[in-house]
Design a binder for these strands. Structure first.
Length: 323
DNA sequence: AAATACAACAACCGCGCTCTT
DNA sequence: GAAGAGCGCGGTTGTTGTATT
């Protein structure tokens, strides 16, 4: 048996919201709140809209203090850094950017930031070629504009990415899962750019996100197994399996942030004293956290601490992981 | 000026999860 | 514990505006 629809599709209006609908929804919520039931809300107001549609409209457009457009470079950098670390968890990323909604960030990423990054990549690519960087033919991106990270089966490498010796050691199953994975590809791009668009002084720095090989992984965790085990579990549960990527990436992030508490203050909500990882040993989910409540607490820290976070993300873990 | 292509944004859809009964 | 309702999220599609030919 299929899932029951959340509302009667036939009697529900779809498409763009009129100013009148906006005004009614806004006025009602400002006066009465949502009442904890979005499904019933449109009936109370007399709107022929799906409850989910009302919720979306409120959250993405009508809610106070929503910013639209005009993303700053700092915001770009934060988005990129978080995309590197947690992937397309737009709601979590949005929680780090006051006034931004997940939908807004998602759209911004899909329509502009991704292209901006690829544009930079293309530029770097050309510069490298001019310097005699030895780009082979056929290294161009595919029709969708993506650069191949690894070819099918992982037996050959992209001509752009580092030589095999510098490449992470993926297992066969990991490769199978992530070949042609856009997220992985984009993340590689971001990592190369150190999670930002502006070129920094340490442009040649090697990415810290070199995934530990199967041989090095256990060592990392064995060193502090009593604390790392719940941490790793919590990370997996909180951000989902997909997060782990081909690299045990979230675990790496855990490790480096754990080892650099001062630098990770932007992620206090996640790692800090009494934070979710500290308090919930392996049983939390992203849904169990009320990000709207968490966000106000962390907003003030985010931007000022970004440099530190970025430094933490991009400078420290090389020796940690390769140790 | 008209047609077409592209970009940006708003909104919808389906799924997984949590909560309630 | 099971089932249903509702919420929240991420992916995708549709619409509108702008640029180009």
């Amino acid at each position: 048996m299929g899932r029951a629809p959340c509302c009667d599709k036939a009697s529900v209006k779809k498409g763009p919201w009129s100013p009148e609908e906006d005004a009614r929804l806004k006025a009602y919520i400002e006066q009465h709140g949502t009442g904890g039931n979005w499904i019933a809300l449109p009936r109370k107001i007399g709107l022929k809209r799906c409850g989910k549609s009302c919720r979306l409209r409120w959250l993405n457009y009508l809610r106070p203090n929503i910013k639209h457009g005009g993303f700053s470079e700092e915001e770009d950098n934060i988005i990129c850094s978080l995309y590197i670390s947690i992937g397309s968890r737009w709601s979590i990323i949005a929680a780090q950017l006051p006034g931004r909604t997940d939908n807004d960030i998602k759209n911004y990423w899909n329509t502009r930031l991704k292209k901006k990054l690829l544009g930079k990549q293309r530029k770097d690519h050309q510069q490298q070629a001019r310097r005699g960087g030895g780009m082979e033919q056929g290294a161009e991106r595919d029709e969708s504009g993506n650069l191949g990270v690894l070819s099918e089966g992982g037996s050959s490498q992209s001509t752009y990415w580092p030589e095999p010796a510098a490449m992470p050691m993926y297992s066969t199953s990991q490769l199978d899962r992530h070949v042609d994975d856009e997220h992985a590809s984009m993340r590689q791009l971001l990592i190369k750019n150190e999670g930002r668009f502006s070129s920094g002084s340490n442009a040649g720095l090697q990415s810290p996100f070199i995934p530990p090989s199967s041989a090095t992984l256990p060592q990392i965790y064995d060193d502090s197994a009593s604390t790392m085990t719940p941490l790793a579990n919590a990370t997996t549960t909180a951000f989902g399996e997909g997060l782990q990527g081909p690299t045990g990436f979230a675990a790496d992030l855990d490790e480096l942030l754990r080892c650099n508490p001062v630098k990770s203050e932007g992620l206090d909500f996640y790692y800090g004293a009494g934070g979710m990882v500290a308090e919930h040993h392996g049983s939390i989910t992203s849904e169990s956290i009320n990000w709207s409540e968490v966000s106000p607490l962390i907003y003030p820290n985010v931007v000022p601490s970004y440099q530190g976070m970025q430094q933490c993300l991009f400078e420290e873990p090389v020796h940690l992981i390769l140790q």
